[in-house]
Amino acid sequence: MQKSKSNLIQSVDRALQILECFSKKDNELGVTEIANRLDLHKSTTFGLLSTLESRGYLKQNLENGKYRLGLKLFELGKLVEEGMDLRASSFPYLKELVDKYDETAHLAICNGNQAVYIDKVEGESAIKMSSQLGRSVYMYCTGVGKAILAFMPEMDIDNIIQNTDFNQFTCNTITDPDKLRDELKEIRKREYCIDNEELEVGLRCVAAPIINYNGYPVGSISVSGPASRMSDEKLESIAKDLKRIVAKISETLGYKTEKYKNL
């Protein structure tokens, strides 16, 4: 169903129109050029350009005062590209995990200081979960999030922790930054993580990270199920399969590892 133009936010629409002015031919544009193309006042155009530049979507050439597209667009484009590649390469493994364990398997990617679900396969006996595709989740209290966070550089971990509001979802939620750091160290040692009813009571999860060509965790795969079925023994069995699977997927992204080949 097409959105009515009456629902559009004018300032956002104008900002997007500015971004769409740029092309291979017109890779740099000045305030007056953009204002004329879009029939806007120069003051309005300048304000929009300044806002887009402050967010990294545009970059000003200080020599001539003109603007060009910024790195933020490249970052978002890479996120979309990696997500599409990951979905294609990961789906058979999600299906393999569900066929074997009859629980819910998720694929998530890193987006700033959160993880985002981009694929999901459910088993026949899987409980219904609030893990809609496209949903963002916290790093500190979810399996997919902790698996990514644990393998980030220390500087990124510090930044995310400092900018996180730690909410107490269950009695098992880790809300102390120091305890979270200790947990992340343990996750790095065993190379997988467990969500032990930290976000939802009665839900346990095991997850492992997907690493790209430069050693950065770009995503994770998890298997979730009710605590009544997800015993410690079952979690260990799933973890072994997960470590093998994420190693294979990571290799498709250019990450070189000899680990888990005999698992």
Results as ranks from 00 to 15, higher is better:
Asn27Gln: 11
Asn27Trp: 14
Ser89Trp: 04
Asn27Ser: 11
Glu53Val: 02
Asp26Lys: 11
Phe46Glu: 03
Arg87Ser: 14
Lys72Asp: 00
Tyr93Gln: 03
Phe91Tyr: 12
Thr51Asp: 08
Gly77Gln: 12
Lys25Pro: 07
Ala35Tyr: 04
Glu33Pro: 01
Ser89Glu: 13
Arg68Pro: 01
Thr51Ala: 11
Gly83Ile: 02
Thr44Tyr: 01
His41Asp: 10
Lys95Pro: 00
Gly30Glu: 10
Phe46Arg: 07
Lys24Tyr: 12
Glu53Ala: 12
Leu71Tyr: 03
Arg37Ile: 05
Val98Ala: 08
Ser89Val: 15
Thr32Tyr: 09
Gly56Thr: 00
Thr45Asp: 06
Leu73Cys: 11
Leu69Phe: 10
Leu40Ile: 08
Lys59Tyr: 04
Ser89Phe: 10
Glu33Tyr: 00
Glu96Leu: 04
Pro92Met: 06
Tyr93Leu: 06
Asp85Pro: 03
Leu29Tyr: 12
Thr32Lys: 08
Leu71Lys: 14
Ala35Thr: 06
Arg55Trp: 02
Asp39Ala: 10
Lys66Arg: 15
Leu52Trp: 07
Leu71Cys: 02
Ala35Lys: 08
Glu82Arg: 00
Asp26Gln: 15
Asn61Gln: 03
Asn36Tyr: 05
Leu94Pro: 03
Met84His: 11
Leu86Ser: 14
Leu86Gly: 14
Thr32His: 11
Arg68Cys: 06
Ser43Ile: 10
Thr45Val: 06
Phe74Arg: 13
Leu97Tyr: 00
Ala35His: 04
Lys72Val: 01
Phe91Gln: 12
Lys25Val: 09
Val31Arg: 04
Ile34Cys: 09
Ser54Gly: 00
Asn64Met: 08
Arg55Ser: 06
Phe91His: 12
His41Lys: 10
Ser23Glu: 06
Gln60Lys: 14
Ala35Glu: 14
Arg68Asn: 04
Lys24Cys: 09
Phe74Tyr: 09
Arg37Leu: 12
Arg87Pro: 14
Gly77Tyr: 12
Gly47Glu: 02
